[in-house]
Design a protein around this nucleic acid. Sequence first.
DNA 1: CCCTCTTTGTGCCTATATTCACAAGGGCGT
DNA 2: ACGCCCTTGTGAATATAGGCACAAAGAGGG
Lengths: 246, 246
Amino acid sequence: MTSRTPRPRDRGIPEATVARLPVYLRALQSLSERGIPTISSEALATTAGVNSAKLRKDLSHLGSYGTRGVGYDVEYLVYQVSRELGLTQDWSVAIVGAGNLGRALANYGGFGSRGFRIAALLDADPNVVGDKVAGLSVRHIDTLENVVEAEDISIGVIATPAAAAQRVCDRFVEAGVTSVLNFAPVVLNVPDDVDVRKVDLSIELQILAFHEQRKADGDVGPEWIEALEASADDPPRGMPPTPRNI
Amino acid sequence: MTSRTPRPRDRGIPEATVARLPVYLRALQSLSERGIPTISSEALATTAGVNSAKLRKDLSHLGSYGTRGVGYDVEYLVYQVSRELGLTQDWSVAIVGAGNLGRALANYGGFGSRGFRIAALLDADPNVVGDKVAGLSVRHIDTLENVVEAEDISIGVIATPAAAAQRVCDRFVEAGVTSVLNFAPVVLNVPDDVDVRKVDLSIELQILAFHEQRKADGDVGPEWIEALEASADDPPRGMPPTPRNI
DNA sequence: CCCTCTTTGTGCCTATATTCACAAGGGCGT
DNA sequence: ACGCCCTTGTGAATATAGGCACAAAGAGGG
């Protein structure tokens, strides 16, 4: 598939690579600010916290932008990565939910270090509508469709309680938004052509807890683990091993 | 390696599976609240937004907890997944940074739907020290070591500006914390035995922008893409194709 | 102008993750 | 007591990601 004339820069960039490009970009921008003109894959990989071969392979997907024996030109690479990520154009973002999180997001100054513009902040609560947050006046959720069209919103951010998330998402999609960043702890249902990314604080904590528990398990002897498992596998009191049917 | 007597439940759960368990858990808890006694892998997979075979394989890593022809007992599975994630014990969390984000996190009531306890909120700014947030009094960062010991902190959350993050992280590590959740846009340097997970708002937006750009590219004809690429590959005005050396 | 030394770009091998497809298990109706 | 039918658990096939190790590119010195 997608096997038309092989182009110098194949557009089929692996998802794993895409997820790392922003990290490289941040490292590069920091180097740029410090006036460092070139950097080797080894050094850049170290600051980005990845393996240097992986970094080179990632960058090779964008094109052949390094110089053997020297490294990469920082400014040039900043530009190429930015372009690949679509940051050479501006994206308008609307945030729904002006609670703690929504306000934190709106105030998050370095929102993508250029490339993104918070165009609107919406909420359903009449008491917060009109509040000034980060230079924006909170608008009522009923204006969502108008806002999306008027401000040419391409990315919708959902920072509402879980119960409201799907409804807000549906309205975004209906209004033509095709990228959604979801902070609510629910799985959103969207058509295939809409991208959703989810950020879930408690999921991250739970993953950490899992590993933390592992470390603790290792601290006790193996006999202990056996003993723990033997009892742990039992269901808690009052839990039927034989489920009733639906 | 790790090939001792095969135990009924192998502890080597794939990382990808661990990352999905919290999602399953949330879905199961929701079912539990609605009083639904059993659920099939197909139905659970749909609510969790994954493929049903993947879900079954994931769950099979915990043990054989389903009933053929029927499905999984919801309560029982909630318990098993919770236990596997280490949520049957309590974890104390300390948040450093009482800015917008830190406050949002502290106020985030459903912080893991049990299992986690926000034990302290710290900040370096004397003006915010003493503020009441989510029933907690903000303490000064200098008390970090004491807090970690007194509250038996196992997970540290970093919600500071980027510049302070590494320093705070070092102090956490030095004080004995082995799990860190980092919201600052920097790559943290830690010893091997410390787990770090990173949540980065602008990275998520950038990934969305990448895909959004793709969709837009597809909207124009292929000739257009060729034309765009031909010019886009050129460096911006004033950018040297031949880099100077370090 | 050639030789040396550094660093890229990538072929190839390994590991991890996903998905299909089906045999085996077990409840439930008759 | 039997057999049907639904759903699990998993082997095997495929896809994606990671990383080693090296040939080839190119800068810079002599």
